[in-house]
């Protein structure tokens, strides 16, 4: 009986630890994605839906759907990376489009 209780509480502890670490992982990924978004915004190139994805990710995480939350964060992160690349590309391209 005693042994069983100990076993169960250890199990619960391990489970909650993994939950905590998954949450921490999400928080870190979210923060990194939001910083990327601000980096894109700083060069004037934030995309329309990035902020929305980050908001939806927070909501999904609050409802315990970390899988969905992480996917949304990844999407937001990728968008901002693409936007920053786009800006770097356009700095060299725009002037050849000018009507002369």
């Amino acid at each position: 009986m005693m042994k069983k209780t100990i076993l169960l509480s250890v199990l619960a502890l391990v489970l909650s630890f993994s939950q905590v670490s998954a949450n921490a992982e999400f928080e870190a990924a979210w923060k990194a994605a939001d910083e990327k978004r601000m980096e894109a915004a700083a060069v004037g190139y934030e995309w329309r839906d990035t902020k929305k994805f980050l908001k939806q990710a927070k909501e999904a995480a609050e409802q315990g759907d970390l899988d969905k939350a992480m996917k949304l964060v990844a999407k937001a992160h990728e968008q901002s990376e693409d936007a920053i690349t786009q800006q770097a590309r356009e700095v060299h391209l725009w002037s050849s489009r000018v009507i002369r």
């Binding site: 693409d82 786009q86 590309r89 489009r97």
Partner: peptide, 16 residues
């Protein structure tokens, strides 16, 4: 954009 960087066609895959 790979073929023409000024193309008005959106990069459907590249930009997700």
């Amino acid at each position: 954009l790979e073929k023409n960087p000024h193309s008005i066609m959106p990069p459907f895959g590249l930009h997700g």
